[in-house]
């Protein structure tokens, strides 16, 4: 019960202090929206092509919504020593970091549904498999958040967090099969693509929205879950080894 009170209040504080602030909305929503609009206009296709672009829009909204804030705020709190307050609380590191990441997961998931609702108003989404799309969106939000956490605990300065985030984010956008299939990539680049969690997330999104897939659904879900576990475990190990010296 006591751990739950701490968990809930950390989540609530982070939502109020960081995620529901205008700069974050601009990163999490505006950037993917502009990006996709650019693709949409360039394609010259009509509204019926919107479902084709939707997986990209959903994935980018999650990716930028989760990683932008978490990696910076954790580094910022560590630098300002307010993170010490959390480390001193009588809760396990696992509960603490789940609380710190829950805000980003929640924000990323909400972010993902904004373009989906907009698309629902503009085009027909009756073919969408919601039973796959909803859990996939949550799982992509979790993996992107844990990637943000991994970045946060790997750097010391706030500016490093931003730079390091982009090091992962931008190549990932092009290599994960969101805008063109992985099969179209040069053969030597494909292994890199399979090392990115979003590759599996993008494939699930294509399956649920456009019924086109590259890999079996169960494999995608399993690998994405594995990425989540690995990133979280590695981040906790980093905190224990680097922050509690």
């Amino acid at each position: 019960m006591k751990a739950w009170i701490a968990f809930w209040n950390i989540l609530l504080k982070d939502m109020r202090s960081y995620y529901l602030k205008p700069p974050n909305i601009s990163w999490g929503l505006l950037f993917p929206l502009v990006w996709i609009t650019m693709f949409f206009i360039r394609s010259g296709l009509g509204m019926e092509s919107l479902p084709k672009l939707l997986p990209g829009l959903v994935a980018l909204s999650i990716l930028f919504g989760t990683t932008s804030v978490l990696s910076v705020t954790v580094t910022f709190e560590k630098k300002g020593r307010s993170f010490e307050r959390l480390l001193l609380a009588p809760i396990s590191l696992e509960v603490l970091m789940l609380a710190k990441t829950s805000g980003a997961i929640l924000f990323g998931t909400i972010n993902a549904f904004v373009p989906i609702f907009v698309a629902m108003l503009l085009t027909d989404l009756s073919a969408v498999n919601w039973a796959i799309l909803v859990p996939a969106t949550i799982l992509i939000a979790i993996s992107s958040t844990f990637l943000g956490l991994f970045i946060a605990v790997s750097v010391k300065e706030v500016f490093e967090a931003q730079t390091f985030s982009n090091f992962f984010r931008f190549p990932m956008i092009f290599l994960c099969g969101l805008f063109f299939p992985v099969k179209q990539l040069p053969i030597w680049l494909r292994p890199v693509s399979y090392m990115l969690p979003l590759t599996y997330g993008a494939d699930i999104l294509h399956t649920s929205i456009n019924q086109t897939s590259h890999m079996p659904l169960l494999l995608n879900f399993s690998l994405l879950t594995l990425f989540c576990a690995a990133l979280f475990t590695f981040s906790l190990r980093n905190i224990r080894n680097k922050w509690i010296i």
Binding site: W8, S17, G80, R85
Partner: peptide
């Protein structure tokens, strides 16, 4: 090392919550 963006009251409440106070 309290949170600069929180008020004095909210800072104390947050710290209390970390220790499981209702």
């Amino acid at each position: 090392n309290l949170y600069p963006e929180l008020t004095g009251f909210n800072n104390l409440c947050f710290c209390g919550a970390l220790y499981g106070l209702t």
